[in-house]
Amino acid sequence: MNYFYFPLEQWTNTFVNEWFLPTFSSAFESISVVLNSFVDFVTSSLLFIPAELFTLILVIIAWRLGGKGLAFFTLIGMLYLGSVDIWEESMNTLSIVIVSTFVSLVVGIPVGIFSAMNNKVQAVVRPTLDFMQTLPSFVYLIPAVLLFGLGGVSAVIATFIFAAPPAVRMTNLGIRHVPKEVIEASKAFGSTSKQLLFKVQLPLAVPSIMAGVNQTIMLSLSMAVIASMIGAPGLGATVLTSISRVNIGLGLVGGLGIVVLAIILDRITQGIGQNTK
């Protein structure tokens, strides 16, 4: 089938090494600095709070949003994280999840709003999201390391690429699914486009947006192991170590830690979504 040779590999390398990196390295440098201090800030805050206090706060939140069962599970889960001695790793993972979810939402929700408002934007955004979700993550791990270096920032960027699409899609979907008559009613009484968005479309899209937030958080967590390959600290690193040492016990300890965090975060964010319905 090679009727002609398509030098994609060479072109990409030339493009990245000879033009892209020299031109934008300073820009990426500043992004890196900002994100790095953000990750550091969240991590040190989480580690600064005594584990007992953090558990108490989380149990209360779980109780308010998910009921007694979830509160009990949260308590047991936190006790587990402490007793197998992976509290620090868990907080590291949590901070990367928090930062990448935050970045995903800050970028994803506005993009979702724009693509709901405008079919041309949607026509560009949709294939981009498909691309972001289906491209094997190892492919963008390499450029992420090239651009941002090893560590938390690259992990946040890689996680963002994988986890932002649901936030965009669900925001878009939520706004597009607001009944036509409700939109017409809002317009007929003389709403400006801004009033229509903030008083009608966004409030009605909240359950859908919250489902997107939930998915974003889940996907962020599922990236924890892969992110640890580019030097992100946390539970992923624990699992990775266990693989390299063929230490099954350590693998289970780290893996269960991820599962515990995932279940707690999932149920809590679902609770937020249901409360706003």
Binding site: P179, E181, V182, E184, A185, K187, F189, G190, L204
Partner: peptide
């Protein structure tokens, strides 16, 4: 629209 035209819809068009 604000000053002169009120409107009522078939399926009510209420804000849920």
């Amino acid at each position: 629209r604000r000053q002169k035209l009120g409107m009522v819809f078939q399926n009510f068009g209420l804000f849920p």
